[in-house]
């Protein structure tokens, strides 16, 4: 019998702890597949965030470092400067990357740090119980915006991909989504391209992945995928935001 589907080598056999319907599992798999296909697992070092993906070091089957909240790009910088011939990636959520770690991500990008960032934007804090994220949509109800996000009180959603694309140091930035098969395939292509950008020594690469959080959004997994498509994509347009030569 021919095996047509198997676990990527770059994932351990540890079962994910993620909630039913959460798209972290999909993105983990896409990252692992890209690493496998590029044949770089032995020289890849990942940096896990603080957030739902805090245990990423248990899932990615490569050497890993666990960073403090928001500091993954600084930790990755330290690793990459010591080991410039290795592949270094961070995996960060929206609270980690776009709130507490804003300085770290902006400056890693502007230094043109030759690392790859996988940025999960699900418009909410998952691990701590559904608080407002910097990427929470206007009107979106969260534990800390119980009346919906009011821009007069809580500001506006932050578009990290567009922001980082303005920096000369960034080489490749794309926003993708994982709400259906077609978009998952596009996401895979983008993630692979981000690693290729690093392998070519072109500088900072980031893929922002629009994701769901059915648990904290208070929806079924299917409703959540639909909500992402209908509400998040209009606010966070998909596509390549930056591509160097």
């Amino acid at each position: 019998m021919t095996k047509v589907f198997t676990r990527p080598k770059s994932l351990t056999d540890k079962p994910f702890h993620y909630c039913p319907g959460c798209t972290h599992g999909i993105v983990h798999r896409l990252v692992a597949e890209a690493i496998d296909e590029l044949g770089i697992r032995e020289k890849t070092i990942g940096v896990a965030p603080v957030g739902c993906a805090v245990f990423a070091y248990e899932y990615f089957n490569c050497d890993m470092q666990e960073a403090a909240h928001g500091r993954a790009p600084a930790v990755a910088t330290g690793i990459k400067r010591v080991l410039p011939d290795r592949v270094v990636f961070t995996y960060q959520g929206d609270g980690d990357l776009a709130a507490i770690g804003t300085a770290e991500i902006v400056h890693a990008a502007t230094r043109g740090e030759n690392i790859t960032v996988i940025f999960i934007n699900n418009a909410i804090y998952g691990m701590t119980g559904g608080q407002m994220a910097p990427t929470t949509l206007i009107g979106q109800v969260t534990a800390t915006t119980p009346y919906g996000r009011d821009p007069g009180k809580a500001g506006y959603p932050i578009r990290m991909s567009e922001m980082l694309a303005t920096l000369e140091g960034s080489a490749y930035i794309e926003r993708v989504s994982v709400h259906d098969i077609k978009h998952i395939n596009q996401a895979k292509r983008a993630i692979k391209k981000a690693f290729e950008t690093q392998l070519a020594g072109k500088g900072f690469s980031m893929v922002e992945v629009l994701s769901t959080c059915p648990t904290n959004w208070g929806m079924t997994p299917v409703e959540a995928l639909k909500w992402l498509e209908q509400n998040m994509i209009p606010c966070y347009p998909l596509g390549v935001k930056k591509e160097g030569k």
Binding site: Q65, A67, R71, A74, V75, R81, A103
Partner: peptide, 10 residues
Amino acid sequence: VSAINMVYGA
């Protein structure tokens, strides 16, 4: 903050 985290990584 970033400097000490670069130290961590290195």
